[in-house]
Design a protein around this nucleic acid. Structure first.
Lengths: 124, 124
DNA sequence: ACATAATGATCCATATATAGACCATTATGC
DNA sequence: GCATAATGGTCTATATATGGATCATTATGT
């Protein structure tokens, strides 16, 4: 009665960054993972085999095959290459040609995008 | 002469993991980044615009557009989706169908790959 | 030509992905 | 059916990717 003791416990929550992904993104990654897994089995490669050749851990390979969105794109692409899943449906040569085309297109586009300062009046 | 003092400095090197990537992997990522950058400019979107919509920082978007292999695949795919770069050359519907096909194929394949214990004699 | 928006680059703190070890379960070859 | 290889999952320490701030430079609309 004389003395009430209040103890406040301050809990510091780690402000975790939870990203949101569009459905298309999730499905694309899921598909890629599935294709990798199917290709690996068709080629009779164990998960340890592929992980070793890609220089990654078996656990990471599992996440990749599940379509986990939080993996390095480099690791995913490397695994895909190893098991023979073509990205862009293109071989190396076509890929390089495509890169050049993109560079050319980029050279033509403005170097920086500037917002219009005023609404365009195209309604009349 | 009487006393030579040797000081050894022990430098603890962080054993950094430096992955190696195949040329195909590097080029595929480079191409994807270029396509994203071109698509963004064609749509007159500033890097800050796209970064905000994707829920990532401007710095990360820059790395993605450069084809940096050490980015979350989720972030890369999300940005690609936002600026309209189709992964797999497929729309959402086709994608889902493709996923089902892959699942069907996986159901037929053996659940685990077992190495042959002995070399197969197919030379006779 | 000028004002300033957009981009490029660097730095640091921190959130987090990864490797690696471990164990349980499953599936395969024999 | 058995031995065991392959897979799936969990946990922890650590390497590292990311966000955010800052500054310099460039490019664009007016």
């Amino acid at each position: 009665m004389l003395c009430d003791l209040y103890v406040e416990q301050i809990i510091i929550m780690p402000k975790s960054i939870t990203r949101t992904y569009s459905r298309y993104t999730r499905e694309a990654s899921s598909l890629l993972g599935g294709l990798i897994r199917a290709a690996r089995k068709e080629r009779q490669l164990t998960s340890q085999d592929v992980a070793d050749r890609a220089g990654i851990s078996r656990g990471l390979l599992q996440r990749i095959e599940k379509g986990d969105l939080k993996c390095e794109i480099g690791a995913v692409f490397e695994v895909a290459t190893i098991v023979g899943v073509k990205l862009f449906d293109s071989d190396e040569l076509t890929l390089r040609k495509h890169i050049r085309q993109t560079e050319d297109k980029l050279a033509l586009l403005p170097k920086s995008v500037r917002k219009k300062s005023r609404v365009v009046h195209d309604e009349f």
